[in-house]
Write a protein that binds this DNA or RNA. Structure first.
Lengths: 131, 131
DNA sequence: ATAAGGGTTCCCGTGGCTGGAAGGTCAAGC
DNA sequence: GCTTGACCTTCCAGCCACGGGAACCCTTAT
């Protein structure tokens, strides 16, 4: 299977797949003409990567997870630890965004949004006390 | 005021302040010895930037907001539009993170996390149907 | 005179790709 | 056989918003 088909199967752009080979997440074989040749196992890995990335795991997380994935004798606790840490970092990000949202929506609500220049958003941004 | 004091006043690293000058967000004067000299207006701008960045506005958003901030005849609607768009993008990010969180916490919960190799997290990541 | 603690510029690296240039390969149509 | 177009290859540059560190200059205190 060529890279185009692999891309279609996994939903990953060809560029991304090449990049994943570059950083040694996958190691597809090569045909005589130099084209990458993707086997079922490669597709499976790419699907795994696509999904893990979509869940926000970093590339290095993915690398670790892929290793565990291939290690049939892994302890599920190892996997759970990585996933748990990532879950915590997602929670942190959500909290941070919620805080931003609260502050900003307060500012936006208080702004008339008309032709006049008075704008509590700008005032609030300039003077933290007033946010 | 030198860059160190400006940094202390605004909470922004000196590196960041130099970067902001580089990309022309601020234009502090220079002393005879070549040191940057920050006036009250510069500090005010930096404070504005620090706060807007903390709320997740991009640099280009900040540039636009700063322009409006300095334009005493601006319409508050212009400011509100930028802030509203950013608010919407924050909401998008929160939704995306919540979706990730839901999926991932489901996987994590279903994993025993012991010494056995069976791990629904890895299975779920490999096979989307089973997530 | 020297040492510490400012400041300056410059260039490289980050993460995770994405775009584009320059060129090789393959299948189809004339 | 030749061209066209779609595919594939490598490599280089750029994105965002800085941060690290080198190499050097300026100021102040001892």
């Amino acid at each position: 299977m060529n890279i185009g088909q692999a891309s279609a199967k996994t939903g990953l752009p060809a560029k991304t797949i090449r990049y994943y080979e570059d950083i040694a997440l996958i190691r597809p074989q090569r045909d005589a003409n130099g084209y990458r040749s993707f086997l079922a196992a490669d597709i499976h890995k790419l699907t795994f990567l696509a999904r893990a990335r979509a869940l926000g795991f970093t590339i290095e997380d993915c690398r670790a997870l892929l290793e565990l994935w291939e290690d049939k004798s892994r302890a599920s606790a190892d996997v759970k630890r990585i996933a748990g840490q990532h879950l915590a970092s997602i929670e942190d990000k959500i909290s941070a965004l919620n805080a931003m949202h609260e502050t900003l929506s307060g500012l936006v609500t208080s702004c008339a949004g008309d032709n006049r220049p008075d704008c509590p958003i700008l005032t609030g941004l300039g003077d933290p006390e007033q946010a």
